[in-house]
Amino acid sequence: MHRAALLLALLATPAAAFAQAPAGEHEIQVVNRTGQDAVALHAVRDGRANWGQNTLPRPMPTGKAFTLRTRAQAGCRFDIRMVMADRREAVLRDRDICAQPRVVVEASDLRAAPSQPAPGTPNPRARISSGTGFVVGTDRVLTNQHVVGGCDRIFVRTADGRMLPAVPPAKVDAALDLALLAVPGNPGEVLPFRRAPEVRRGEGVIAYGFPLPGLLSSDPKLTRGEVNGLAGLGNNASHYQISAEVQPGNSGGPLLDLHGHVVGVVVSKLHAQNIAKRIGDIPQNVNFAVKGDAAQAFLQRAGLAPQAEASRGEEMSAADAGEIANRGTVFIRCER
């Protein structure tokens, strides 16, 4: 999920011996012997699903070489890809750049480029992570920043099964771990925030989202719990502590009261194993959500006026609150 940092050292030069890389770096020299210009060159850690950025600042003629450096922490195993002017490409997998730092690309290595997904459609070959989001305005979806950070492309799956691409850039608040996505095409109904009264300890809440994708079924899941505390880990005043169970994939989903109004954004759970190592006991069901007030303030800073309603009168069932949540909650697909 992390890109190997590539440090450009020498532009297109005649294929020849090259200087030793500085300590802490590996050096790769890629030679073009294909008979035509190369327009793109990629070098990434072996097995990565995405090729990252093109390292060539200009086309590289045949008979020339390009030298780049990688940090030693990235290891020795790299995949190399060279794209030619006629769109054919050479892909050389699992090259040990420590043992053989000079990579020669021959005409016999060239193949037709694989077909690409149509614009605006998911790439089945991409590396995928996922999370949850919910609609907070016309064509606007709120989620966690960590759900969408580092994504090359983002898609949301709506309650009626449509897959819509998000339009970058997202507006983010890293401190709150929130991100606002622009998703044209009507991703769902707007979920209103709770305007009043103040949230109290012991209030019933539901978390709604898509936990453990690929393991559990693809439909959204509802878990019920309570607001346990009015501050988060380390007295974080922007968080609630909640007992509604959450799992990986719930991040960014709505936390609703039993009037169907958003009181928070699910953000994290306490890592039970790490805490057990520190205190000798396993914490039970300790989870956190960004407070609705903090989320609304972020949306206002991002130029969006969130809808808000008072939670008055008789509470509804968790099932009925879940029906409301379902109309505005989306699955988020991050491609890298």
Rank of each mutant, 00 (worst) to 15 (best):
H2Y: 09
F18N: 07
V30N: 02
A38Y: 10
A38F: 10
A38K: 08
W51P: 08
N54F: 06
P57W: 06
M60K: 08
T62Q: 07
R69I: 10
R81K: 15
L92H: 03
R93V: 07
D96M: 07
C98S: 08
V103F: 08
S108N: 08
Q116N: 05
A118C: 00
P119T: 10
P122E: 05
P124Y: 01
R125H: 11
R127W: 06
G133P: 12
F134L: 12
D139N: 15
R140C: 12
L142D: 12
D152N: 14
L164W: 07
P165N: 08
K171R: 14
K171L: 14
L178N: 09
L180S: 11
L181R: 13
P184S: 09
P184L: 12
G185R: 04
N186Y: 00
N186F: 01
V190W: 09
V190A: 08
L191F: 08
A196T: 13
P197L: 07
R200C: 00
G209Q: 13
P213K: 00
T223L: 05
T223P: 09
R224M: 11
G229W: 06
L230E: 07
N236R: 13
N236I: 02
P248G: 11
N250V: 03
L256P: 05
L256A: 05
V262T: 12
V262P: 00
V267N: 12
V267H: 03
K269D: 01
K269G: 15
N274D: 08
K277L: 13
R278Q: 14
V286S: 01
A289V: 03
A295L: 05
Q296F: 01
A297I: 00
Q300F: 00
P306S: 07
S311K: 02
S311G: 15
G313C: 04
E315N: 08
N326C: 00
R333S: 12
C334Y: 05
